[in-house]
Simulated assay, not measured.
Amino acid sequence: MGSVFRREITVGYEDEGSGEPLVLVHGHPFNRSMWRPQTEYFSRAGRRVIAPDLRGYGDSTMPPGTTAAPGASATPDATPLATFARDLVDLLDHLGIERCALGGLSMGGQIVMECYRLFPERISALLLADTFAAAETPDGKTARYDMAERLLREGMADYAHEVLDKMVSPDTITARPDVAAHVLEMMATTPPEGAAAALRGRAERPDYTELLPRITVPTLIVVGTEDTYTPVSDALHLHERIPDSRLTIIEQAAHMPNLEQPHTFNAALHEFLNSLPKAAETTAASTSAATAPQG
């Protein structure tokens, strides 16, 4: 675990293992602990795994002036996806990583697409999990802005309980209450200011549909069969438009298959990473967590 002060914020992150870098970007409203099964598995499987907290989530802070004093209302600016993307590249620079396999889930997947739009030379492969490429609809924009106001006004707890059975499947809630509890805790403890700023930024995100056919790195797309936020049809849309992409559909999982069915998720990602041509792998493999500068 480490932290670094970059561009007026402190970024918390995990940096485990050594070998080819794999960077994992969490979704909303979670934190880097959502990738714990992948961090543990792939760091033992010969990868260097970096999982950061996005600004305003987990241990990462917001810029000065975007949080409210106790008892006061907070109206933080939006956090555009491009800002998240630049934070990630700043972290890669800090860690001495020139290129990496980059993956994200939900909002994290859209941040990954934004990274590819802005910094394709830094990316050797993509993982897009339970995400979609289209810009927000007018109704969707209104809903995100309204939700941002609600979270600032009421906090995260009620929202977290309301959406739990969409984030993870009913089967998961029954059979794996530890996973459901972890997801609920992540949502309930996310700072409302960070979540609200991200919602506003995501409402104004670009349309990545035209980017998809221009993706030239190996890409794995993963989705849970019971995901209602980003259903299988969204994953098929990505798969049909990204050249030579792979698609894995995971049964008995909703929006978080990496936590609900970690063995299946890890197996698919492991096979994908092992299939990458060596020419696509970053030369930063020799830069291990032990030798990288630490914050």
Rank of each mutant, 00 (worst) to 15 (best):
F5M: 12
R6N: 11
G12F: 03
E16M: 01
E16G: 00
G19Y: 00
E20C: 11
E20T: 13
G27R: 09
P29Q: 05
N31R: 12
S33M: 04
M34K: 10
W35L: 03
R36A: 14
T39I: 15
E40M: 08
S43V: 05
A45C: 12
G46V: 05
R48V: 01
V49R: 10
V49A: 04
D53I: 11
G56D: 11
T61L: 11
T61N: 04
P64E: 15
G65H: 00
A72S: 15
A74F: 04
T75F: 07
P76N: 03
P80Y: 03
A82N: 04
A82P: 02
L91C: 01
L91D: 03
L95P: 02
G96S: 00
R99P: 05
L102H: 06
G104I: 09
L105P: 01
Q110G: 06
I111Q: 02
I111R: 11
I111Y: 12
C115T: 02
R117K: 10
L118I: 06
F119Q: 09
I123P: 03
I123W: 07
A125E: 08
L126Q: 00
L127C: 01
T131C: 00
F132T: 10
A134F: 12
A134T: 13
D139L: 12
K141M: 11
Y145M: 08
E149Q: 13
E149A: 13
E149V: 07
D158A: 14
D158P: 11
Y159G: 07
A160C: 02
H161V: 10
E162N: 10
V163A: 12
M167Q: 15
P170L: 06
T174R: 14
T174V: 14
T174Q: 13
V179P: 05
A181F: 01
H182Y: 08
A188G: 12
P192N: 02
E193D: 11
E193H: 04
A195S: 09
A195F: 14
A195R: 06
L199E: 08
P206F: 05
E210D: 14
T216W: 01
T228K: 06
Y229A: 14
P231L: 05
S233T: 15
D234L: 08
A235C: 11
H237M: 14
H239P: 03
D244L: 13
S245E: 12
I249G: 09
E251N: 13
H255G: 06
P257K: 00
P262Q: 01
N266S: 05
L269P: 03
T283K: 07
S286G: 15
S288F: 08
A289H: 09
A290S: 12
